[in-house]
């Protein structure tokens, strides 16, 4: 049974909303019920970007998430704000390229991935969001890599179809990194 409540948080421009959308689309490809809710309005003015994504076997109750089962933390302010929100045992994925500070909680599972560095090494900094989504798939299992591939194929169409392959490669890179570093 899947009942994932994910918050993705970071700066505007890091692809935060797109990461969340790819997770939601992947869940939908898998026949799940999903919702995607951006923080908007006054919350946007500080330059932070946040979205809440539900992926569930059952109809989604509340699109607004207050007790996330997973966090994707792309910068330090997001760690400081959302760490305390996570449920015990939550999977907390941290962009260690930008976040050097350690989480204070000991009852969460922390996965540090240097997303910016990996994207730079791959020569595709704009594809970092797919890298994150790939790593998220491997770490949580709430979506599969194939779901993500399908979501990419259905997102990058017509004039943008030429970007599908590059994005899949980035998703695979993130997925493989997580499998390599976090498999037990």
């Amino acid at each position: 049974m899947v009942n994932e409540k994910l918050i993705v948080a970071g700066f505007g421009g890091q692809g935060v909303l797109m990461i969340g959308k790819m997770v939601a689309l992947s869940g939908m490809e898998n026949g799940m019920e999903v919702s995607w809710l951006p923080a908007y309005g006054s919350e946007m003015r500080g330059g932070t970007a946040t979205c809440s994504v539900n992926v569930s076997d059952e109809p989604v109750d509340s699109p607004m998430i207050q007790k996330p089962t997973a966090l994707i933390i792309m910068n330090l302010p997001s760690l400081l704000k959302y760490e305390s929100w996570a449920v015990p045992g939550a999977k907390v994925i941290i962009n260690s390229s930008l976040v050097e500070q350690e989480p204070t909680r000991t009852d969460i599972d922390v996965y540090k991935v240097p997303f910016n560095d990996l994207a730079t090494q791959a020569g595709n900094e704009r594809g970092m969001n797919m890298l994150v989504a790939g790593a998220y798939a491997a770490i949580t299992g709430s979506i599969t890599l194939q779901n993500l591939y399908d979501a990419i194929d259905h997102t990058f169409v017509d004039s943008k179809a030429k970007f599908a392959e590059g994005n899949k490669q980035m998703a695979k890179l993130g997925y493989d990194y997580a499998v390599e570093h976090f498999s037990k």
Partner: peptide, 10 residues
């Protein structure tokens, strides 16, 4: 409400 306008769902 604004949340329904801004959220995505299938």
């Amino acid at each position: 409400d604004g949340m329904l306008g801004q959220m995505m769902e299938p």
